[in-house]
Design a protein around this nucleic acid. Structure first.
Lengths: 340, 340
DNA sequence: GCACGATCTGGGAACGATCCCACACACCGG
DNA sequence: CCGGTGTGTGGGATCGTTCCCAGATCGTGC
């Protein structure tokens, strides 16, 4: 397997110019579709490009223009959740769609440890990317602070509680949580608990707030358990805990579908029927929700559209558009299935 | 949100040289840890770098060295499966781990349509990446052929049936499939069917071959149904079809866990018990397998290690190492749960 | 004391684009 | 016929590195 001279010298703008019988300046003008190019020159250059098989050298372009034409997507999530969280994939695809249409390359950066965190901060500072989109930052997140201090165009997907001045896109977690909790109330549940999670992020905090708000005076803090991760295991353990705290519990709001799935399995193991004995609702409308037994009622959030919005916002900042909104909220809806 | 002069001029190698009282040539030598640099010069340069906050300009470096220091990861998969396939995420993380240690940037490219396919081929040809890793290519895949013809260092994860001369990493799907099928035979199943899928890839073909091989003379082609996608829906529909073809069916090999999950739900809907009436086995050991009712017995494949191996192979090719093996197989194991 | 190699350093020439200035020409109105 | 404006084109300077060549210095062996 020789890695030697397989790739021969690539054609440059000068080769194109020579082929077309024009100067490299004119070729550059055609490439960047600037004004003041005659139709004949345009045609000649295009023919020459096709003939010599020219493709633009990005490194040279980037060097001269002092841009990278790349946007970073920073995902701060343990590996295990990165693999399972369906929202992240959808955000990634949505972002990629917008950016590639705008001729920007998406570069994904996964942070799984503090070491990664420092390396990524360095990377962002190094001019490798023209802008950055940050997914699932927590409060006190070093990356979030680094970004805010570098002054690079940035957007958060979800809003870290302790940063301001950086635009973000998100959903209204408070009202979404309140509205799905109401469902439990309306269907006659009396003892309603919550398995909360990720309280170091806005999503976690806000879902708890919404839950509390919907219950009003009936809110009972002893029926709330908290876990760091939006995971199946949190749901399993959380539900067990809630059952011991109050065996008469008849409604549960799980802060994510994964948690909901865990709760469902814990309830089954404890011999409770759903929705007969206990009503359960989740959050995300991920693949989990549909596959549970019984299928989970949940909040659907438009993750792909969040990704698109974030991408559009960075591009707008890059173009220097004057009024890039700092807060952008997208609508959620509720999907009713069988679990409540 | 002004995008104006927030990022002031970055320090260059010349600024460092001036600060250290040395020439830019010497600074470059330190940066690339070449020979013939005195200890004092080394120290002076390092101090100067820290003082002026220098970070290397990659565009300039890439321009001069004619490299991009980036590796492409091409995933050829419909969006829906990209989100759900746990192997892809694990491959991505494994790859990223090795590459970032070697100071290479991973660039993910998702192909969801023929249009994408052409654009990505163009991208690879454009010198944006020094090498490429291709996941889940099918036979007749234009990207696979493009890569083979460009002559760029490349590795396949899984082997497209109609390409040769390009290294690949993979698992032995034939023997893994044979061995899990044997389990069904050993536990006394008599009428064993398969829901096959993705026959345009080596994984799909080989799992079918392994199944056939394990059954030997008892193989009955009427008990094999085929679907293009490794999806839950394929499992649902496939199981229904198998039940109509032969209601006495008592064993099923699903070509993936997602298919297995679908099959399980179809069996439940048809009133069959698992593993009582029918034994079911899957492939992948994904999150699906654990969450099914009952949990699925399945083949575990080391997806993260596949990603690492692929990355190592591209790096080896890049370094011009002489004997990069063309075929690399990793061991699989079988996880016994309750479904068979 | 001198030739010679090894070590270290300085500085110029690329790499391949973009950007800008200078110039050529056409057209128009007064 | 002349100045001015709008088009179109050529070619030089430049971005920040790496690479290479030339030269300086220092030992070391004869």
């Amino acid at each position: 397997m020789p890695a030697d001279d397989r790739r021969r010298r690539r054609a440059t703008i000068h080769d194109v110019a020579a082929e077309a019988g024009l100067s490299h300046g004119t070729v550059s003008r055609v490439l960047n579709s600037e004004r003041y190019v005659s139709a004949t020159a345009q045609a000649a250059v295009e023919a020459a490009i096709a003939k010599v098989g020219y493709v633009r050298n990005t490194a040279a372009r980037n060097l001269k223009t002092q841009q990278s034409h790349a946007i970073g997507l920073v995902v701060h999530e343990p590996h295990s959740l990165f693999l399972e969280d369906p929202n992240i994939g959808a955000i990634l695809l949505g972002t990629n769609e917008i950016l590639s249409n705008a001729d920007y390359q998406l570069v994904s950066l996964v942070i799984d440890s503090d070491r990664d965190s420092a390396r990524v901060a360095e990377y962002l500072r190094g001019g490798f990317v023209d802008g950055v989109i940050i997914v699932s930052a927590r409060s006190g997140d070093p990356i979030a602070h680094a970004v805010a201090s570098i002054g690079i165009p940035a957007v958060f997907v979800g809003h870290p509680p302790d940063i301001s001045g950086v635009p973000f896109v998100g959903i209204d977690n408070v009202s979404a949580a309140a509205s799905i909790t109401s469902r439990l109330i309306e269907t006659g549940r009396r003892r309603i608990g919550m398995i909360a999670s990720a309280l170091d992020r806005d999503s976690g905090q806000d879902r708890l707030s919404g839950f509390r708000q919907a219950l009003g005076a009936r809110f009972d803090s002893s029926l709330v358990v908290e876990f760091p991760l939006y995971s199946y295991d949190s749901g399993l353990e959380g539900m067990r805990e809630l059952l011991t705290r109050d065996p008469t519990i008849d409604g549960v709001f799980a802060a994510s579908d994964a948690i909901g799935a865990g709760a469902l399995d814990a309830l089954r193991a404890a011999g409770r029927s759903v929705p007969g004995d206990v009503g359960v609702v989740g959050f995300d409308d991920s693949a989990w929700a549909m596959r549970c037994q019984p299928p989970l009622s949940t909040v659907r959030q438009p993750a792909d559209e969040l990704g698109r919005m974030a991408a559009r916002s960075v591009l707008a900042q890059l173009k220097g558009e004057p009024d890039v909104p700092e807060a952008m909220f997208l609508e959620t809806s509720i999907v009713w299935r069988d679990s409540a």
